[in-house]
Nucleic acid binder design. Structure first.
Length: 701
RNA sequence: AGCGGGGUGGGGUAGUCAGGAAAACCCGUCGGGCUCAUAACCCGAAGAUCCGUGGUUCAAAUCCACGCCCCGCUACCA
């Protein structure tokens, strides 16, 4: 038996969980945990809501409530979602509880006593108007070097790191006022003292994922700077030292200690307050599941903190995932891209979501969530290959025999098939142990496929008439395969696995069984009546908001020519950033000169079905307001290729959109802007404007 | 700008670290088989200059160099 500690990155309690968190952290952690529990290992898997930090206080202010109300809301929601998703923790807690705060304070004091924390004065921006110090990213200004837009301690254009006093025309992002530099004293963690120790510790981590190890080593080579671990805010863990009553411990310092506090709390709740020591002070392997942006916290800062503390286990592996993108773009609230878990759970079975994210997990590079693909994988793989195999076997067996029939008459094919299944099953286990979750689920699918092949070869429906004994034996083999599948699927699709288990006539939960039981002989159970495990999905049902189907993009006009066969048409060439160059035909010639169009940023409907217009192929169309027959362009401001959207409507663009379908979506002009369902069309920089005065209510087309 | 990851048939991915006979899988397309099963399953076929150029080698998707193009990160969006 091994002891396995699993730490899953703490979701921030400032919003709903989204698919990225699930794909990158929660799901891999859960698969890993479930597998090890079935293997008979002692698993302690913890996480919780990360509830401190400025973003939460800002959200609270925006809503006019206390921070506590925000974090309570999302913590409850997270907990509920996790349960619905079948993500099982030994302890899923939160950083605002007293237990955690006390552990953080103890940890802090221990480091302080050992001399790893020291005070230092620094200058920071203070906004009189808001009466608060501003975190870096809430200060905007101009870069002294390239005159580009600078945010906080860095220029967004040239990427140069800036000292606070260098930044020109600083502006408070909250109130727009002018912040001043004010001196403040903070406590620093002596991260720099751990460079060599960390380097030494990393020496035998050759089994880590390349991206994680390389990234970490590069940061170390670049040299570590001591980090301020206190902030001038009121929301957070109090600093347990005199003179720091107005400061709080910085959220990253507090959050990672959560791994330890959650373990201690778990032991406490179990009534065995020392039990956590078995994982933290005795031999145990520590795994941390997180996404790539979180790597430095878990491979440098947290290990350094643990070293500073002393006597606690360091991470064994940090199999960080890359990102899940949404139709090619990064999840982002501010850009209106993303899929939120509460929404997903209303529409789909947890295991369907788990399946798609497992087989499409961003292990080595970013992977893309695509609705078409999601539907296709559900329908063609889960339903057709996997679900159908189980269903056809159980249906056949229960209809004809009622119980698991005995195996009495075999042949070579049986042995070969079982051998192959067994081999695949073992590989699934190995894959999970190495955190190659994608490979594991693929092998499970392969097993279902082997089952289908076997059945097609031996044709039990024919044997039923002329060789019942052989037929029973064949079905016995098929049921064995079903059992293999149930056990192997348990970490990936826990609810489904349990359903299969019940169909096989077992009364208990598969999650209390052992992984190796998959090989054990079937009992002569009475089979349950089968119910289809999954159902087909229809893309049209999923994408119910017609606006979601649109793929609207910012496009810059780079060339305009007359259409060879039409008076009112231009043939325009557009730069659509990541989508490349596009040629479209547009009927705006009567109202716009060629010259004034070039360089303009307009709104393009990028996924409109291509059409020949008077002999010229047009790939998309531009949007304009129709003011009594006169076309007036919509003007965008964002980067070429960036999305144009309505806040609150999830973008789920279809591949191709019919013109008629587009016409049903009624957008109208209002006060120089474009309104749809009470909200305004916008891009990443703000609302889209109409290029001139048009009557309110003019239709956009 | 620096760093990291990537570019593989029409789409989505595997394979690349340890170079080798037919480049794997799912979808899509075309043809066939089966009829137990959720019109599901199974078999076969077509379809790839493995981003480009040059190099190392008996042998390169894989190693090296240069170039092009995407994406991400740069320390609080997973």
């Amino acid at each position: 038996m091994e002891r396995i500690f699993i730490g899953v990155a703490w979701p921030y309690a400032n919003g709903s969980l989204h698919l990225g968190t699930l794909a990158g952290c929660l799901l891999p952690g859960d698969i890993f945990g479930r597998y090890h529990r079935m293997k008979g290992n002692a698993v302690l898997m913890v996480s919780g809501s990360d509830e401190h930090g400025t973003p939460i206080t800002l959200t609270a202010e925006k809503e006019g409530v206390e921070p506590k109300e925000i974090v309570d809301r999302y913590h409850e929601e997270h907990k509920k979602n996790l349960e619905e998703l079948g993500i099982h923790f030994e302890n899923f807690t939160r950083t605002s509880n007293e237990f955690h705060k006390n552990v953080v304070k103890d940890f802090f004091l221990r480091l302080y006593d050992k001399g790893y924390i020291y005070p230092e004065k620094m200058k920071a921006f203070y906004c009189e108007n808001c009466a608060r110090f501003l975190p870096d990213r809430y200060v905007e200004g101009i870069c002294p070097y390239c005159k580009g837009k600078a945010r906080g301690d860095q220029c967004e254009e040239c990427g140069k790191t800036l000292e606070p006093e260098e930044i020109l025309q600083p502006k408070c992002k909250i109130c727009g006022g002018k912040p001043t530099l004010k001196e403040t004293e903070h406590l620093f963690f002596k991260l720099s003292a751990f460079e060599n120790k960390l380097m030494e510790w990393l020496k035998n981590k050759h089994y880590w994922r390349d991206n994680v190890l390389n990234f970490t080593l590069n940061l170390l080579k670049a040299g570590l700077k001591d980090r301020a671990i206190t902030r001038d805010i009121e929301w957070g863990v109090e600093v347990p030292l005199e003179g720091y009553e107005n400061k709080r411990i910085y959220v990253w310092f507090d959050a990672v200690i959560g791994y330890l506090s959650a373990s201690k709390e778990w032991a406490e709740k179990k009534g065995m307050p020392d039990e956590w020591k078995k994982w933290w002070m005795e031999e145990a392997k520590h795994y941390y599941f997180l996404a790539k942006d979180n790597i430095p916290f878990h491979t440098i800062i947290w290990p350094a903190m643990l070293m500073a503390h002393g006597g606690l286990n360091l991470p064994y592996d940090v199999p960080a995932n890359e990102y899940l993108t949404m139709s090619g773009e990064q999840f982002s609230k501010s850009k209106g891209i993303g899929i939120w878990i509460p929404n997903m759970l209303k529409k789909f079975e947890a295991d369907v979501i788990r399946y798609y994210l497992s087989i499409n997990m961003p292990e080595k590079h970013d992977t893309d969530w695509q609705w078409e693909d999601f539907v296709a994988k559900n329908n063609n793989e889960l339903v057709a290959i996997y679900g159908n195999f189980i269903h056809r076997v159980i249906t056949f067996a229960s209809k004809n025999f009622g119980v698991v029939p005995p195996y009495t008459k075999g042949d070579d094919l049986d042995a070969r098939t079982i051998e192959e299944i067994k081999n695949n099953f073992e590989e699934v286990g190995k894959a999970i142990e190495k955190c190659y979750f994608k490979e594991g689920i693929k092998r499970i699918m392969r097993m279902a496929q082997i089952g289908n092949q076997y059945m097609n070869r031996v044709e039990p429906w024919k044997l039923l008439k002329d060789d019942e004994e052989r037929c029973k034996s064949v079905i016995h083999i098929c049921l064995k395969i079903v059992k293999f599948l149930a056990v192997a699927s348990a970490p990936y699709m826990p609810k489904t696995a349990d359903k299969i288990w019940k169909m096989l006539g077992y009364n208990d939960s598969i999650h209390n069984r052992k992984w190796d039981e998959a090989y054990e002989e079937l009992e002569e159970n009475e089979l349950q009546k089968p119910v289809p495990l999954f159902n087909k999905l229809n893309l049209d049902d999923i994408v119910e908001e017609p606006f979601s189907k649109l793929d609207l993009r910012v496009a810059k006009v780079i060339n305009v020519e007359n259409h060879p066969n039409a008076d009112k048409l231009y043939v325009m060439e557009l730069d659509v950033g990541e989508l490349g160059k596009r040629r479209i035909v547009a009927g705006i010639k009567p109202w716009y000169e060629k010259g004034e169009l070039i360089g303009k940023k307009i709104v393009l409907l990028a996924n409109l079905k291509s059409a020949k217009i008077r002999g010229v192929l047009s790939n998309g169309m531009l949007l304009a307001a129709d003011d009594g027959g006169k076309a007036v362009l919509l003007i965008a401001n964002g980067k070429e290729g960036s999305r144009v959207y309505i806040e609150g409507i999830e973008g789920k663009p279809v591949k191709e959109m019919e013109y008629e379908e587009f016409r049903k979506i009624k957008m109208a002009a209002k006060g120089g802007k474009v309104e749809y369902k009470g909200k305004f069309l916008r891009d990443e920089t703000g609302e889209i404007k109409i290029d001139g005065v048009v009557k309110d209510g003019s239709i956009i087309r």
